[in-house]
Design a protein around this nucleic acid. Structure first.
Lengths: 241, 241
DNA sequence: CAGTTTTGTTGCACATATGGCAACTTATTG
DNA sequence: CAATAAGTTGCCATATGTGCAACAAAACTG
């Protein structure tokens, strides 16, 4: 029973790239395989040439989309459920500390998909039903994906309120600001009278898998409190990493 | 720029297997690659040994699940959202025709995960909140996954009501019956006083991705109506294929 | 910012893995 | 039950993959 050595190594490399699910350095791959760097270079170059791996600008290698997402991208049901269970205490704490509704969403088909929420006790509340969808460009949760995930805004930025950003350049600036801040905001851009803040949730590989945020009526959230909420969400999101 | 020949050929073979999406004969693969049968044998044997291809009883070779299905277990968020949108009309129709609640669920971590529902208009109703989880062995939706999907029941079959099947053998018999019927049932096995029926939803590849079902209080569902509901769900599920 | 270390790529030569041939075994067909 | 086609194994020559070492390019570091 003879096997082709170089092919075996190549496939083993693929397995490793898929398993690690993040860009890997040549040296690490070579030492994992137990071969010379030179050999690893050839293997990886072949994988890239055949479309099974990609090389980033930092020279690191990763499995191509062919391997990582054979059809739909995005987290699996398993991952969502696990994340939901892991982060629900955070939602509860957010709502307890702020008195406002908190939500968790994942990315699906260029929209945010609400998968969990904790309702506010107050009579005036924000309610995105679990299972519903929302736009990326004018919700805090959506902007969190634009800022920290690999989501892209739709071509046409639909206007929902006077405050909705409909210009791609303005949106890009805002997303950049969100990245610097560590959280994204929605200042009455989707629904008049509602302000939201949201931060990213990363999985063990550093890939953004979900967003969590707090939403409340503008009447209860002045500029000062708006910033406080943002800081709180940012703290809660990055605490668990 | 030198590439590894045998690795290239191996990956090219994988592409071909994936593209053709059906078991292929050794000779065809060899002639496609333009190599000797002997060489093709070695390549395919290596692919099989590395888990990238499989050889059927008829000796034909096919790409392994690693290549065909998205490697993460369970459907992706994208797939769930798409299925939800596609099948929500069916849920609505089920509730309209029966007056009872209808639900849709996907499989996540050996549990059913409710991702959509249409409420009954009647005052006495069954309510599984969207986003909540349920056991596989004693819900109609869960049994649908056991019967038509590739789910496996937990080791310990927890007892929820006197009617819960806690014996693996009895459960296997019931699952087998479900397969024959075309739908699964839950006769007060999870909650006393509630009867449910559920059928499978398949994607374009014939892989079960979700289950949809109807639930109502036993007082409104006698044996005759129970069967009618099952027939209805079965019809609705298999209609859309 | 120069010196130092680490990492990635290229050239080369040798050993050997690999591909074709042919013989052999196993299935398929008339 | 021939007869033919498909699949697998043995063998050998050489194309080819591998490691070594030199080189180039980042990444640290003081």
């Amino acid at each position: 029973m003879r096997l082709l050595q170089s092919l075996s190594r190549g496939l083993q490399t693929l397995d490793y790239l898929v398993e690690q699910a993040k860009p890997l350095r040549l040296t690490d791959i070579a030492s994992y395989l137990g071969v010379d760097k030179s050999n690893a270079t050839h293997i990886l170059r072949t994988l890239v040439a055949c479309g099974y791996a990609t090389q980033g600008t930092d020279r690191r290698y990763a499995a191509s989309e062919k391997m990582t997402s054979s059809q739909g991208s995005g987290p699996t049901a398993e991952a969502i459920v696990a994340t939901r269970q892991q982060w629900q205490p955070v939602l509860k704490q957010l709502t307890r500390e702020t008195g406002e509704c908190s939500h968790m969403a994942v990315l699906a088909s260029s929209q945010v998909w609400y998968v969990d929420k904790i309702d506010s006790e107050l009579p005036l509340k924000v309610d995105h039903p679990i299972g519903s969808l929302g736009p990326l460009h004018c919700t805090a949760l959506g902007k969190a994906f634009l800022a920290f995930g690999d989501a892209e805004a739709e071509q046409e930025l639909k206007q929902f309120t006077p405050a909705t950003l409909t210009d791609h350049k303005a949106l890009a600036t805002e997303i950049s600001k969100s990245r610097d801040r560590g959280y994204a905001i929605d200042d009455e851009e989707f629904t008049s009278g509602i302000r939201c803040v949201a931060g990213p949730v990363f999985d063990e590989h550093g890939v953004m898998i979900a967003a969590i945020g707090v939403s409340g009526p503008t009447v209860r959230i002045n500029d000062k409190r708006f910033e406080e909420l943002g800081a709180l969400v940012e703290k809660m999101c990055f605490m668990r990493e």
